[in-house]
């Protein structure tokens, strides 16, 4: 693939940027073409995924109605908005699962990736970004259907939309960094399941995926402030549904940037250490 070698061949910043863009565009195109073939499979996946927020939505709307129309600052209509936006954010958040590393290492697929002249994380980032194009297309009718049924209340201003559009990509890159980092644990131990489970449980509870953060106890909210999770779920969602004032919108984007930088640094360092432990058996 000529575009893959371009980043190292380009001279000058313009050529380098063009080469990187070419690499990402090619990877995304391949992903779109391959994923569009599996529409039924992708739809199964998405319906399974939509079940989760619908359950939360029904439970919390029921609680809100029983409590006189509001709980934790959310009305049933606002819960509907929260969990419908959730479905898009969740899709945008899908990054390479850390479980994929076991197969990569054991099956020798990693050997091939190491031969390419770019860091393997770029291939993952670009490939999954392409899949998202397909997913968003499949998501639109689901979102329309959910909106029709659950009647969300939204108070959106233009700045909310702009911040949201940036924040969902920020969330994607942020979560990708940390899941990649988590996947690298595979280089040190083969019993990765429990480590991954702890991570995903913490994420579920402290990101706003399960419930809006305002419903969590104070100590959990404070704890979440020191962790990256909430910037991948609750921040983009609350940005779009009009729950955040302008300073928090910009502050949130700043926090995303900070955590992406931390994640990228950790990935760079850990990758150097991890790849030294890798001995190929085929591929």
């Amino acid at each position: 693939m000529t575009t893959a070698t371009a980043p190292t061949l380009g001279s000058g910043p313009v050529a380098a940027i063009r080469a990187w863009a070419g690499l990402y565009a090619t990877q995304m195109r391949i992903a779109i073409l391959s994923q569009i073939q599996y529409r039924v499979s992708n739809y199964f996946y998405m319906i399974g995924m939509v079940a989760e927020p619908v359950i939360y939505l029904v439970v919390w709307s029921t609680v809100a109605r029983q409590q006189g129309g509001e709980v934790g600052g959310f009305t049933p209509g606002e819960f509907a908005a929260y969990y419908i936006v959730w479905t898009l954010v969740r899709n945008m958040n899908i990054a390479l699962t850390p479980y994929a590393w076991e197969e990569r290492v054991r099956g020798g697929e990693l050997s091939g990736m190491l031969l390419k002249p770019v860091h393997p994380i770029h291939l993952d980032l670009a490939g999954l970004a392409g899949w998202k194009a397909v997913v968003i297309l499949l998501w639109l009718p689901i979102a329309a259907f959910l909106s029709l049924i659950f009647q969300p209340t939204l108070a959106i201003s233009p700045i909310d939309v702009v911040v949201f559009l940036v924040a969902i990509w920020g969330a994607y890159f942020l979560r990708s960094m940390f899941l990649w980092l988590l996947g690298l644990v595979t280089f040190w131990t083969t019993r990765v399941g429990p480590v991954f489970s702890i991570f995903f449980t913490a994420e579920l509870l402290l990101s706003g995926r399960l419930v809006p953060m305002s419903l969590m106890p104070d100590w959990a909210q404070q704890l979440a402030g020191y962790l990256p999770f909430r910037w991948t779920f609750s921040f983009p969602i609350e940005a779009l549904i009009g729950k955040l004032p302008p300073d928090q919108l910009l502050g949130g984007l700043g926090m995303q940037l900070l955590w992406i930088a931390i994640g990228a640094t950790l990935v760079a360092v850990s990758w150097q250490l991890a790849v030294r432990r890798f001995s190929a058996v085929g591929g």
Binding site: Y38, V40, S41, N42, F44, Y45, I47, G48, M49, A51
Partner: peptide
């Protein structure tokens, strides 16, 4: 190809 069936059911 029905690989995602268990995801659907689990959801």
């Amino acid at each position: 190809k029905m690989d995602e069936l268990h995801e659907l059911f689990e959801g």
